[in-house]
């Protein structure tokens, strides 16, 4: 039974699922049925220090850089149309491998060339992002982008962060004005 978190709500990964070390973020959406440009949604992750910045550009995991230096975060591949059942993009996280100085993993979803193509999440059918326990497939949280982020083009879905020697997940659900490039810069990545 998945918890549908309110914005700002959080859940302790260690308590809700003791021994949980492997999670993944899944992003799914439907192929566009109507005429026009395809909907190309992208899931990305940022490895952040307690200053809220990346150490360097290698801490930004996305379709062009699919694995972090230590192998703790891995993007399983770009999907440009939403073709296929279930999760169309997956980012796997091994919490045990996350370096000490990284205190937060932040997950985002954005629409590729949203502005040029005049697209937003509300135009996409069945766009959902969720965080799942890899071992048993139990959904920890999900966010319905089509419905609840309808006029956004880029958003911070949630974050996994260290708190008193455990990992917690917080659903952020915050749209980001200025597009994805501005968001990436905001975390100290050079684009």
């Amino acid at each position: 039974m998945a918890i549908t978190l309110q914005k700002g709500g959080n859940v302790s990964l260690s308590k809700s699922a003791p021994g949980l070390t492997k999670i993944f973020v899944g992003l799914g959406w439907d192929v566009r049925a109507t005429s026009g440009d395809e909907f190309d949604l992208d899931a990305s992750a940022f490895l952040l220090t307690d200053q809220g910045k990346v150490r360097n550009d290698n801490d930004f995991i996305f379709y062009n850089q699919t694995i972090s230096t230590e192998g703790s975060v891995e993007h399983m591949g770009d999907n440009r149309t939403g073709a296929g059942e279930g999760d169309d993009e997956v980012i796997k996280v091994d919490l045990d491998k996350v370096p000490r100085e990284i205190t937060k993993l932040l997950f985002t979803v954005s629409i590729y060339e949203a502005e040029k193509r005049h697209q937003n999440f509300g135009m996409v059918s069945s766009a959902v992002i969720r965080v799942v326990s890899e071992a048993d497939g139990v959904e920890i949280a999900r966010y319905d982008l089509s419905e609840d982020a309808s006029t956004e083009t880029a958003m911070i879905f949630g974050e996994v962060y260290r708190y008193n020697n455990e990992w917690k997940f917080r659903a952020v659900g915050q749209g980001f004005n200025g597009g994805f490039a501005a968001l990436v810069k905001n975390f100290g990545v050079n684009v």
């Binding site: 697209q119 999440f121 509300g122 135009m123 419905e147 309808s150 006029t151």
Partner: peptide, 11 residues
């Protein structure tokens, strides 16, 4: 006043 939606939005 009615709500005026943009494309993709819902009410």
């Amino acid at each position: 006043m009615p709500a005026i939606l943009q494309k993709g939005a819902n009410l």
